[in-house]
Simulated assay, not measured.
Amino acid sequence: MKKYFITIVLLFAFLFMYFALFIVQEGQRGLVLRFGKVLRDKNNTPTIYQPGMHIKIPFIETVKHLDAKIQTMENQADRFVTMEKKDLIIDSYIKWKIIDFSRYYLATGGGDVSQGEVLLKRKFSDRLRSELGKLDVKGIVTDSRNRLMSDVRSALNNGTSGNEEEEILYNKKIFDNKIINSEYIPQEIEIHPNSMAALGIKVVDVRIKQINLPSEVSDAIYQRMRAEREAVARSHRSQGKEEAEKLRAAADYQVARILAEAKKQSLIIKGEADAETAKLYAFSFNADPEFYVFIRSLRAYENSFKGNQDLILIDSSNNFLRFMNNSNK
């Protein structure tokens, strides 16, 4: 009998330990619930368990495991309007973490991550839309993007819109390191109802991954860019033709000038040669006129009688054949 009693005691002890002991994994926090309500101490501070092994009251207390690591939420690309009333398709993501597990549990209806991301996405979309409405396209895609992300992150965490009085009134000490490390925001600190701190969340970082234009706007811009490039190409081609005509005209002018100069030189040389020839003829003629007349007559005979069949009718007393007349010595 005693043996059975010990067995039953050990069984109950095992069951008690089984239901009383629980382990919180690294990177998680355990939020204790008693009859479905968050367990708090006498200072109204939620009971939050750190990673390790802990004990709870079986069947009365339950533990909700919440992720304490930085999480990433990918946002679906959405359409936003800039200060210039131009549409942009922006793809972004958010880095966030839980800083008040009790608030987060209550705000998300039991610590549901998907519900928390829905609330976070809704506030982020509204805040990003508001901030983008203050900038033009050039400011969004250039150096102003970092400032834009910083403003959106600050506005999400503080729930304010950049008004200094609001920032002084709310969240002045929320993100102090001491409070963050405590994983609980004291009740005496007044929290803006539109801030992420009201959900027990802190936005660690906000980033824009990609900025695109809507398809209808992109097509129009591409067509305009193509028309501009074609206009530039036509301008370059016309300038090239103009330069080609200038070079061609200059080359034709150089050719004409060189040919004219060469013709001039050839005429001068020919004239000088003709003058020298005439001078030689005159010198020879003056030296022996009769011999010159004889030579000239022989050349005339040679040119007149080309073949054996040539026939010329001329008076025998004609002076042309005087050198062929036997009576003439």
Rank of each mutant, 00 (worst) to 15 (best):
K2S: 12
K3D: 07
I6A: 13
I8T: 11
V9K: 04
V9A: 11
L10N: 09
F12T: 10
M17C: 13
L21A: 15
R29W: 03
R29G: 06
G36H: 12
K37L: 01
H54G: 04
H54V: 05
K56S: 03
K56N: 12
I57T: 14
I57M: 10
T62P: 02
H65F: 03
I70W: 05
I70V: 15
T72K: 10
M73K: 04
E74G: 09
N75L: 02
D78N: 01
R79K: 08
V81F: 08
M83Y: 13
I90Q: 10
D91A: 07
D91I: 00
W96T: 11
I98M: 01
D100R: 07
G110H: 09
D112R: 04
G116C: 09
E117V: 06
L119D: 12
R122W: 08
S125Q: 13
L128C: 05
E131H: 11
I140V: 15
T142M: 00
R145F: 03
N146F: 04
N146C: 00
L148P: 11
S150E: 10
S150K: 14
D151T: 13
A155N: 12
N158V: 04
G159P: 08
T160N: 10
I168E: 15
I168G: 11
L169F: 12
L169H: 13
K173Y: 15
K178R: 05
I180H: 02
E183Q: 07
I185A: 04
P186R: 03
E188L: 02
E190L: 05
H192L: 02
P193T: 07
N194E: 13
N194K: 12
M196L: 03
L199K: 07
G200T: 04
V206C: 03
V206I: 11
K209I: 12
K209L: 07
Q210E: 13
I211Q: 04
N212D: 14
N212L: 06
P214L: 02
S215F: 01
E230G: 04
E230I: 03
H236P: 02
S238N: 14
G240W: 01
R248W: 01
A249E: 10
A251N: 11
D252R: 04
Y253C: 03
Q254F: 05
R257E: 14
L267M: 05
A273W: 07
A273Y: 10
K279P: 00
L280C: 03
Y281C: 01
A282L: 05
F283W: 08
A287E: 07
E290I: 09
L298T: 15
R299D: 14
K306I: 08
Q309W: 06
Q309P: 02
D310F: 00
L313A: 09
L321M: 08
M324Q: 06
M324R: 08
N326L: 05
